[in-house]
């Protein structure tokens, strides 16, 4: 009540607080710009280049990068243009990231919100299922799936989405439970609002923020898993490629043609770092503990 209503944001000195906030915002903005450039390049890149990602030209094998010449990123050991391959690989990596995130998002939100809102025995049961799934070594299963049932891209989406929905379900359920206890939801119940109305008018809009944040943080995780599978040779198959597959090829020839490793590795790393920073920034901005009211 009267005491303890300290004006918020316990940070260091005023200037440093402001600087910190700006640095944070700048970092956030920089990450958005960099990621934007990469996404644009990945979409437009393959059309700009005269080369195709699968054309083999052994005469030009392992050409170093020349920025004024034919091959901006050089060529690989089969003489394929690395720029186009990196962009094409990016398409796959980012698309897997996006689609599998959506899969896990839909599944996780529905599961979590249902459990959280219904509560009681159903909630208990649904969360037991999640607990059991947590105890399953999913990476092993994904690898098994890939090895045993061919390496196709739909299976990658399904497998990765199936791994990642657990976290989302837990977060959404916790948040829904918290919202259910809030007085404004009780107020809606008392008014006589129907269950769907409470879920869609009151709970879901208040869930959106956190879902967006965790979705943003799921994308890099998913990209990581896909590139990991591709690195093991279990992901997308030649001549199609992804950043993980390109890194794997790069490691084969890194002593003679390091650029084959460096370009895709950098693109992958930079994208993941940017995505993580953006998600983190969104989370901080959304965290009620760090804001007024």
């Amino acid at each position: 009540m009267a005491s303890g209503a300290a004006p918020n944001a316990p940070r260091h000195s005023l200037t440093r607080h402001a600087l910190g906030a700006m640095a944070r915002d700048k970092l956030f903005a920089a990450c958005c710009v960099v990621l934007g450039v990469i996404v644009l390049g990945v979409i437009v890149g393959p059309w700009l280049s005269p080369h195709s990602y699968y054309a083999i030209n052994l005469e030009f094998a392992q050409q170093p990068p020349q920025f004024s010449g034919q091959h901006w990123f050089g060529t690989d050991d089969l003489g394929r243009d690395l720029f186009v391959r990196a962009m094409q690989g990016g398409r796959i990596s980012l698309m897997v990231g996006l689609v599998a995130t959506i899969v896990s998002l839909v599944f996780g939100v529905v599961w979590g919100a249902t459990a959280g809102y219904l509560g009681g025995r159903i909630d208990h049961l649904m969360m037991r299922v999640v607990d059991i799934f947590y105890a399953i070594p999913f990476m092993f299963f994904v690898i098994l799936l890939m090895v045993l049932f061919g390496r196709n891209i739909i299976l990658i989406f399904v497998a990765i989405g199936a791994v990642n929905w657990l976290d989302m379900a837990r977060i959404v359920r916790g948040q829904t439970l918290a919202l259910r206890g809030r007085e404004f939801v009780q107020a809606a119940e008392v008014i006589g609002a129907s269950r769907p109305r409470i879920i869609f008018r009151h709970i879901v809009p208040n869930l959106l923020g956190i879902v967006v944040v965790y979705a943003t943080l799921t994308v890099p995780q998913v990209i990581l898993i896909e590139s990991f599978l591709s690195f093991l040779g279990l992901g997308v198959q030649e001549p199609m490629t992804s950043w993980g597959a390109l890194v794997q090829q790069g490691t084969q020839v890194m002593s003679t043609a390091p650029w084959v490793l460096l370009f895709p590795a950098t693109l992958l790393a930079v994208s993941l770092v940017c995505l993580n920073f953006i998600g983190d920034g969104l989370r901080d901005a959304l965290d009620p503990k760090d804001r007024h009211r």
Binding site: A2, G4, A5, A6, P7, N8, P10, R11, H12
Partner: peptide
């Protein structure tokens, strides 16, 4: 005093317990 009258903050200042954005 009522909430926001500054009574708790005055005491926090005396004890050196203001939050970090306080002077």
């Amino acid at each position: 005093g009522e909430s926001g009258s500054g009574k708790s903050q005055a005491m926090a200042a005396i004890m050196g317990l203001l939050s970090e954005n306080g002077r």
